[in-house]
């Protein structure tokens, strides 16, 4: 606040200095008194971190054991919201469900994680591929474990998918209204096998090379589309334009085949399979959740459908 008649007088300057001094004193004093109080407040707040703004911004509800919070725990979580809040008390019996669908999905996640890590060390080229696997096995920390886990998880996934299909069949879970989801499941089974098969060639060793050679040799016998298949020749198929050529990117299993199987394995099929998985899980919910264990039905109670 400027003095009204202040024109270069000393007193005024002293007044300003005093005011500044007083102000600083006040600031220092407030540091001494307010900060400890704030610190205490802060420490008290930290004793219950669930009340902090950061925490409440992430978790939208409390976690005490109340029915409301149990439901919200599932419904307000993007990863868990595929589940309903409540299910039939018998539906959690794993003697009925075997848990194989969930295990399959879990193995898919494990395979994605280990697969991404493997991709850091792998070049899909004839010169590098085999050496990369050797490097991975002998020099990369935990590289051998990584590769082993990827391979065994893949085999386990094939088994889990089969057992899942087996359970779904034995419990008649493909019946109305789940026919369509069974079809998605069959496609997912095929893509699981294809994922495993395309990965087989990637180490570029004798095992993968000959397995893929045997496998793709069958493609040349495709009726109408392979050069050795029935009516293939009549339709103008040669080793250089038939369906096998398309699969391998050449007439032999070579660099292009390696690249193609790498891209199918790491990008193409996982995307398609992921989309189908989304539909599959969505339909499980939309078709009324897990099929059972349902109350048994008697033959005398069957209502004949209208024709």
């Amino acid at each position: 606040m400027p003095e009204e008649n202040g024109n270069g007088k000393n007193g005024n300057r002293v007044g300003l200095l005093e005011r500044v001094k007083a102000g600083v004193k006040e600031d220092v004093h407030s540091l001494k008194t307010d900060m400890p109080a704030k610190a205490k407040e802060q420490i008290d707040l930290l004793k219950d971190p669930t009340k902090t703004q950061v925490y409440t911004s992430i978790f939208r509800h409390k976690h005490d054991d109340t029915p409301r919070n149990r439901a919200l725990g599932v419904l307000s979580n993007v990863f868990l919201h595929l589940h309903p809040a409540k299910i039939n008390r018998d539906a959690v019996r794993y003697s009925y469900t075997w848990g194989m669908g969930g295990i399959t999905f879990y193995l898919f996640i494990v395979l994605t994680l280990t697969g991404v890590l493997l991709m850091f060390y792998y070049h899909p080229s004839k010169v590098q591929a085999f050496r990369d696997v050797l490097y991975l096995e002998h020099d990369v920390p935990f590289g051998k474990l990584l590769r082993n886990m990827h391979r065994w998880a893949a085999h386990l996934m094939v088994i889990a998918v089969w057992l899942h299909m087996f359970r779904v069949f034995l419990t008649g879970s493909y019946k109305k209204p789940r026919e369509f989801n069974w079809n998605i499941g069959v496609l997912l089974l095929v893509f699981t096998l294809l994922l495993s098969f395309t990965g087989y060639l990637l180490p570029d060793d004798q095992l993968g090379f000959w397995a893929v050679t045997v496998g793709t040799n069958m493609a040349r016998a495709t009726p109408g589309l392979g050069h050795e298949g029935p009516f293939g020749k009549q339709l103008g198929m040669t080793p250089y334009n038939d369906v096998r050529f398309g699969l391998l990117g050449g007439s032999i299993v070579d660099a292009n085949a390696l690249l193609r199987s790498y891209i199918w394995h790491c990008i193409g099929i996982p995307i398609v399979a992921s989309v189908l998985m989304i539909v599959h899980f969505w339909r499980v919910r939309k078709d009324g959740g897990i099929s059972g264990p349902a109350p048994v039905m008697l033959a005398s109670e069957v209502k004949e459908p209208r024709k």
Binding site: Y96, S173, N183, V190, A294, V296, V302
Partner: peptide, 20 residues
């Protein structure tokens, strides 16, 4: 593959859905 896919559409038995 096709055979597996047609199963739900040719199995007309309404019994045995949801239990062993």
């Amino acid at each position: 593959i096709i055979g597996l896919m047609v199963i739900p559409y040719i199995d007309t038995n309404p019994l045995g859905g949801g239990y062993y």
